[in-house]
Design a protein around this nucleic acid. Structure first.
Length: 654
RNA sequence: GGCGAUAUCGUCUAACGGUUAGGACCGGCGGUUCUCAUCCGUCAAAUAGGGGUUCGAUUCCCCUUAUCGCUACCA
């Protein structure tokens, strides 16, 4: 428990003291007045029995008679002082631990976003984290000298290290004895969208954090809606994020018979019943309920059919679905993310567990599979809360033990609707096409609706595994903001080495037709240098392509506006002279390029900018880009001279 | 309509019941620089409304409002 001194205003202290003393005074008045009277009478009587007669005009006698009164005042004074001391101590105490109520009724504060709750699992954070986070990421070809003065970001990182070590001090507590086994269960009715990806990330992190297993199950019980060709894209999109199943992937389509067996068992045990209502009839029921503004639940028409009626309908060849019979009462469960969720069973309809063709519906299949796969924690979107109530009744009907549930708030589109393929939301793989790094997507989705409770935002996967705690989910839905994703992407690009980025960019350059695979393979160092000087100008990996065009395209044109401004007649002379001097350089480095330019500027009595701008335009065709010395160095001596001379000719001719 | 969940800057989020309500993205303005970017500094921006409990409420309770979700022989 952490103690922290809080100040209480003086007037608040006085106010409490005043009220306490008012009560004390009242109590004293009630009890002391008769007591003093009796005591006075007794005292006077004793003296009288001894034959002493009192004369109130005698000062000594007056004092004797007044003694009880004086004593009672003294007593009151002592008592009041005592009250003050008590109140003072109370305040000191309260200021340390935030009030007596915390000690007396700790359970009252549990509703407050799990502030007192201990982490579900031990917090394993590696001690070497005190190294600069940035340094850990940097690869061999980019050794970062740590600046002696920390910048703002590093200060934040250092601050977080302190905070994280504080978190670790809390007593870890295992949420359940069961080994952790979690799953993600996408259905192949669309591509992998960010909502599913986020749930996969949460489950995956929980499994890794606890040392448990993460599994994938494909939910394709609905033959009409499922498309097996979508399975592979979903799995590969997850793989792109670094998420793979620890065991063989389970397909519900392989288990249809098993589900049927359990559906029959529920029917046989009297926990369910046959429903002969046709879909059309049910739809009409719903319409009617809507018109009457009543609840849209099944009216249990078929619950009370007699055995003869049932036999007759079966004999007549009527098709039936199987419904589960929801008992009377109330259903409740404890949720990791939310708290206790309760529902009156009257709100849960007798839903269908097996269709009239005998196949199982979603809820039955899920329960059977989760039980079979020994899933310990079902962590999913809170759009499943209604399903959880239904599924609990299947667990009960089949005698299975319940897993622990966690219902996570949803990710919403900017228009605040639930993300879905139907509304044209992007496939996760599409972000890959658009130059988002998987690390950035992982990091961003993890922090959407979940918080590490620090001021830091950029983490790699390993760090997220270490700090992940399902208690830290936010209670409200979060809007997916692509601008913020881009910002995360920028940060993760900065953390990548030039080589890693070159590997990603190379195929894009080939695809764009700027160069060939062979050309790049023989000039890998060149590509790496190009990446290196463009890195800070990029938000998406794909941005490299457009920005680096002139490094690979030798037939570029000049930006019209810049042409007009910088390619003046005097630029011809500048370009030619500068090119000649560069050509003569024996040692061609950034330093020699810079000194050459400086010398020329001095000789011509010009500002450096006068030389720089035409040169930049000559070698790149555009007015902005990397620092000129970097640019000239990376392009190479021969190429630069050639381009400058070409530009001089161009100006002459225009 | 019924049931449920949720409510802090525009967005993502911090804040043992006591803070000047903090950070990040976006935006504005500066600085660094040959340009653009980076980087640095800085500004603007929020506790939905109303009651209650409390010396004190963003925090606990209730009501209202709003938002979201579910309400299929879909998953």
């Amino acid at each position: 428990m952490r103690y922290e001194l809080k100040s209480i205003p003086v007037w608040a202290f006085l106010k409490i003291t005043f009220f306490v003393n008012l009560i004390a005074g009242f109590v004293l008045g009630i009890f002391m007045t008769p007591l003093v009277g009796v005591f006075s009478v007794v005292l006077v009587s004793i003296f009288q029995m001894q034959g002493t007669n009192f004369d109130v005009s005698n000062s000594l006698d007056s004092i004797i008679v007044a003694t009880p009164v004086i004593l009672s005042f003294l007593f009151a004074f002592v008592l009041t002082s005592f009250e003050i001391v008590v109140v003072f101590i109370y305040n000191i105490f309260a200021s340390f631990i935030g009030g007596i109520s915390f000690v007396l009724e700790p359970e009252k504060s549990t509703g407050n976003k799990q502030k007192q709750s201990t982490p579900a699992v031990p917090q394993k954070v590696s001690p070497q984290k005190s190294d600069s986070i940035k340094q850990q990421y940097k690869k061999q070809d980019n050794p970062p000298p740590l600046p002696p003065v920390l910048n703002k970001k590093e200060k934040i990182i250092q601050k977080n290290i302190v905070q994280e070590s504080e978190i670790k001090k809390e007593e870890p507590q295992q949420m359940t004895d069961k080994p952790v086994r979690v799953r993600i269960a996408p259905s192949p009715s669309g591509y992998l969208h960010v909502g599913t990806a986020r749930m996969a990330i949460a489950n995956f992190l929980y499994a890794r954090h606890t040392g448990g297993q993460f599994l994938i199950r494909i939910e394709n019980t609905d033959a009409a809606r499922s498309d097996d060709s979508l399975i592979e894209p979903i799995i590969s999109a997850l793989k792109w994020l670094g998420i793979e199943s620890d065991e063989e992937i389970i397909f519900q389509s392989d288990r249809i018979e098993l589900y049927e067996k359990y559906a029959q068992q529920i029917l046989k045990d009297g926990k369910g019943y046959r429903c002969f209502c046709s879909p059309e009839l049910l739809a009409a029921d719903r319409e009617e309920a809507k018109a009457n503004k009543g609840p849209l639940r099944y009216n249990r028409r078929c619950l009370h059919l007699t055995q003869e009626e049932i036999d007759k309908k079966i004999a007549d060849g009527e098709k039936f679905a199987i419904r589960i019979k929801i008992p009377d009462g109330q259903t409740s469960f404890n949720d990791i993310v939310s708290h206790e969720l309760k529902r009156d069973n009257r709100e849960i309809e007798d839903f269908i567990i097996a269709r009239s063709d005998g196949t199982a519906t979603y809820n039955l299949a899920v329960v059977i599979d989760d039980n079979d796969m020994k899933i310990s924690h079902v962590i999913r979107g809170n759009d499943h809360i209604t399903n959880t109530f239904k599924q609990i009744h299947i667990y009960n009907a089949l005698g299975f033990t319940l897993p622990t549930f966690g219902h996570v708030p949803l990710i919403l589109r900017p228009d605040k609707k639930k993300v879905s393929k139907r509304l044209g939301d992007k496939d996760v793989a599409q972000y890959r096409e658009e130059g988002i790094l998987p690390e950035a997507m992982f990091n961003f989705l993890c922090l959407l609706g979940w918080s590490p409770k620090t001021d830091r935002e950029i983490y790699n996967v390993q760090e997220l595994i270490e700090i992940f705690n399902p208690n830290n989910f936010n209670n409200s839905n979060a809007i997916f903001n692509e601008e913020k994703l881009e910002a995360f992407n920028k940060e993760h690009i900065a953390l990548k080495s030039d080589h890693e980025l070159a590997v990603l960019v190379a195929p894009l350059l080939v695809e764009a037709g700027y160069t060939s695979k062979y050309w790049l393979e023989t000039r890998w160092e060149y590509l790496r240098s190009v990446i290196s000087i463009l890195k800070t100008r990029v938000r998406r990996v794909s941005d490299f392509v457009e920005l680096s065009k002139y490094f690979f395209d030798f037939d570029y044109s000049y930006d019209a506006k810049a042409d007009e401004k910088n390619f003046t007649p005097e630029a011809i002379d500048i370009l030619n002279q500068f090119a000649e001097r560069l050509e003569k350089l024996d040692v061609y480095t950034k330093e020699t390029i810079e000194s050459t330019l400086s010398e020329l500027a001095v000789e011509k009595d010009m500002k450096k900018g006068k030389l720089i701008h035409p040169t930049r335009l000559a070698v790149s065709g555009i007015p902005n880009g990397p620092g000129l010395y970097d640019l000239l160095f990376v392009l190479g001596q021969k190429e630069v001279v050639e381009r400058m001379k070409k530009a001089a000719v161009y100006i002459q001719q225009k």
